[in-house]
Design a protein around this nucleic acid. Structure first.
Lengths: 255, 255
DNA sequence: TAGTGGTCTAGACCACCTC
DNA sequence: AGGTGGTCTAGACCACTAC
């Protein structure tokens, strides 16, 4: 153990107190000047320590208020049931799930035609830079931004299914609309990654420092080619995904 | 658009240059004192801007060397094939995958008996605080720490399958060993989450600031109850997971 | 030895929130 | 008005890397 710099000692001491529940009363931490006195360090040094805890996602700060221990509430999304192939949902699993949890869902929606981003073009097997329809959804729970969802459809699909390019909801759900026009999604390829948010993402999802995003890219296939690519960006502190694989009878048993 | 603080202007300007590839030659950024002169800001202000980019995962810094644009190389793990129920792998999919990618895998391994952590006990449906066997694996690729994997087995399972609690590899793979003793895993429940690493995780995985971890929790079930819980902690900058669902004939087509 | 980033200080002033 | 965090400065000294 080599000697730690003072700002790390501050961070380590406070972290230990936080996980031990020392601030569970009102979640408020002492002010910077109090900590400065307690640790015999300058205000800037204390700030460095606090910044470390912020970047670890342990605490938040707000001007004029102080530092607070972050509280978590996680929403779970079942990705293997979300668009079950045998029981396609009615286009609104999100609203149903959120309402069932006793929360108030809310979303904004827009449709546009634009050149497909490179990683989308690859997955849809279309020329880089060729046009695609983007249906974009910004989701909230109780007015807290929760996730964004961007679904891209290749241009060739629009000729056969023009309503995809029209603004406004598709009542029966896009999956059913496509199925009714003979285009059936029979398989999905899901990719899951994480990273820190871009400034744009941080703005849209109102994410504070120390919170990563969870990226879920789902490419849907018909029998012979990809027909859509959906990129969902979750706030990492509020969301978790799960998959059910095989026979889970043993999960609901009362053993 | 309100006026941004100076350190954000510094970060925004540098971020724009980075994504535009301005430093693609040698990936080195100008020194703090150069930037201080260029932006007419104190060294500390420039440092605040750079710290922002570090926490976004865009750049790294090393004492005596300077700041560098971070480069990424991602390893993809197929979670739906990883332990395919019909074709159980030989206990070493990780080594195979890494070697196939032309890289050199390496791992350390240990076994111990301890009280199950709360979130593990819940998933294994055992009493909080009751004993479990932990088989822990620390994985490297070309000597870079890549992930850790902790698998917990409930104590009742050990009585029937004592080799689980013995140190050292199980040649044929734990899944096959269990199957040979009449305990067949017929289903999995996967949970995926992300957050910033704890100091302990950052140490084990040698993660620098601005990189989140990807957490994969797999609970395996027999016909009537959970038999194991595996928690894999990935470096978020090096790993991505994927799942194949349904019929993906359209993925390999040459359309 | 020279140049890089890392730590720390003391103090100034601003912006925001609560009372 | 008074307390909180947010921004910024100027300067000192330390630790690491390169040559």
């Amino acid at each position: 153990m080599s000697k730690q710099p003072k700002y790390r000692q501050v961070a380590d001491a406070l972290r230990r107190e936080i996980v031990n529940g020392a601030f569970d009363r009102d979640r408020r931490l002492p002010s910077e000047s109090e900590l400065s006195a307690r640790f015999d360090a300058s205000r800037n040094t204390v700030r460095s320590g606090l910044a470390l805890l912020v970047s670890e996602g342990l605490i938040t700060s707000s001007q004029g208020l102080g530092y607070e221990v972050r509280s978590h509430e996680v929403f779970e999304l079942n990705a293997s049931r979300f668009e079950n192939l045998n029981f396609p949902h009615n286009g609104d699993a999100y609203n149903t799930d959120v309402t069932n949890a006793g929360r108030r869902p809310h979303q904004t929606f827009r449709v546009e035609m634009l050149p497909a981003p490179e990683e989308v073009a690859e997955r849809l097997k279309i020329e880089k830079g060729s046009k695609a329809v983007l249906r974009f959804c910004h989701r909230y729970v109780d007015d807290v931004p929760w996730s964004t969802q961007a679904t891209y459809y290749p241009a060739w699909l629009i000729e056969e299914s023009p309503r995809l390019a029209e603004p406004g909801d598709i009542e029966e759900g896009t999956t059913r609309y496509l199925a009714a026009r003979g285009i059936e999604q029979i398989g999905y390829f899901d990719e899951i990654a994480t990273r820190m948010p871009t400034p744009e993402e941080a703005r849209l999802l109102e994410m504070s420092a120390g919170v990563p995003v969870l990226l879920w890219t789902r490419t849907g296939y018909s029998a012979d080619r990809p027909i859509r690519c959906t990129i969902t960006t979750f706030r990492g502190d509020l969301n978790r995904m799960n998959y059910e694989i095989g026979d889970l009878a043993g999960r609901s048993e009362n053993t």
